[in-house]
């Protein structure tokens, strides 16, 4: 019996490994969300000279747990005029795409475990960065569907705004990423990190055209994840809560989860493309140190996201569009030409 089990494992190592990786990555992502909510509330408290949640557990760490229990047991209200199927589908799409797009993010260099060469990623496909853009592009549908199916003016406006905003900023995001692709000569995220592993061309960030690309990518990334100061789709003062006005309980929490997972994915992408990924340059080249370095860089970027939210006021909608189309996009195109010219010369 036991021999049979071992033989089964031997024959299907890759399949089993893939399943384990998928489960671990998905559950880790979902586990990160409450921690991020806690971090955001604590940091926002600091920034605004107040305490933030500090009553439940040490440093208020019990707060996310109690919040999620509250959300789980809340009554789920669906209004009569809503389109039931789409109303249920929308939060599912948001969370699904957010988790799936993380599948190609490599978290540390390839290492050997039990004589088996493996890497800490769910899959290392050739056009990894395109995959992330493709799947996160699908995530827009969640918001548009939520807006369409709620049968509510504010939700509809929120959905429309989110789709317009994300289409506009996706162009800048893509063109900024294209600079890195031209620089690396590959669409693979692991290649992009390995291109930055030695001093002369370490840290894509220090390369002049890529420095501009970094700023563009960061700004467009904030807009893509619908974070402040670009959180027009859920502007409280004008739209109540935007596309998720009608959602309650866990379905509301799923939109939240999607937003936070997207934030993590965006930070991970920026880390991989511009900040050298898991390279530390001074510490020994171990997989575990690489992972810690990667996690440190990602959490630093997440803190910057939160910092920006508590610093800037929300910008007006027409300004947002003008900024995207007439300012960021031309700079991105010129920057791409520049990078290509430098590569050719």
């Amino acid at each position: 019996m036991i021999d049979g089990i071992f033989q089964f494992i031997d024959e299907n190592t890759y399949l089993l490994l893939g399943i384990i990786k998928a489960v671990v990555i998905a559950s880790a992502l979902l586990g990160v969300v409450p921690l991020l909510v806690w971090l955001e509330r604590r940091l926002m408290g600091r920034f605004q000279v107040r305490l933030g949640p500090n009553r439940v557990g040490p440093y208020g760490l019990g707060q996310p747990i109690s919040d999620s229990i509250k959300l789980l047991f809340k009554e789920s209200i669906i209004q009569n005029s809503a389109d039931k199927f789409l109303f249920h589908l929308a939060p599912v799409v948001v969370v699904f795409t957010a988790i799936v797009s993380f599948a190609v993010i490599p978290m540390t260099g390839p290492f050997e475990l039990f004589g088996e060469k493996m890497g800490l990623w769910a899959s290392n496909i050739n056009s990894g960065i395109l995959f992330v853009f493709a799947i996160s592009g699908m995530g827009i549908y969640g918001m548009v569907l939520a807006g369409l199916s709620s049968n509510n003016k504010y939700s509809l406006m929120g959905g429309l705004r989110s789709s317009a905003q994300m289409i506009s900023y996706e162009l800048t995001l893509g063109l900024a990423a294209l600079c890195v692709i031209v620089h690396t000569g590959s669409l693979n995220l692991v290649d992009m990190v390995e291109r930055q592993n030695s001093w002369p061309n370490a840290l894509n960030l220090l390369n002049p055209p890529l420095m501009i690309a970094f700023v563009l990518f960061f700004i467009a990334g904030i807009a893509e994840t619908n974070r402040a100061p670009f959180d027009l789709p859920e502007a409280e003062q004008e739209l109540v809560a935007g596309f998720h006005t009608e959602y309650t309980g866990m379905k509301f929490a799923m939109f939240f989860m999607g937003e936070y997972i997207n934030m993590v994915t965006m930070s991970a992408l920026i880390t991989l493309m511009f900040l050298g990924g898991w390279n530390t340059y001074i510490l020994p080249d171990w997989a575990i140190i690489g992972f810690v370095a990667f996690a440190f860089k990602v959490s630093f970027l997440l803190c910057v996201f939160i910092w920006l939210r508590s610093t800037f006021p929300r910008i007006r909608y027409d300004r947002l569009m003008t900024f995207g189309w007439k300012f960021l996009l031309p700079i991105a195109i010129v920057n791409l030409f520049l990078e290509a010219a430098i590569r050719v010369i």
Partner: peptide
Amino acid sequence: EFIAAVQLIVYAGAVMILFLF
């Protein structure tokens, strides 16, 4: 892979979002 990603980005992502819009 490449064509699949482009199909998703261009058709399913950009074109269809405009339809829904």
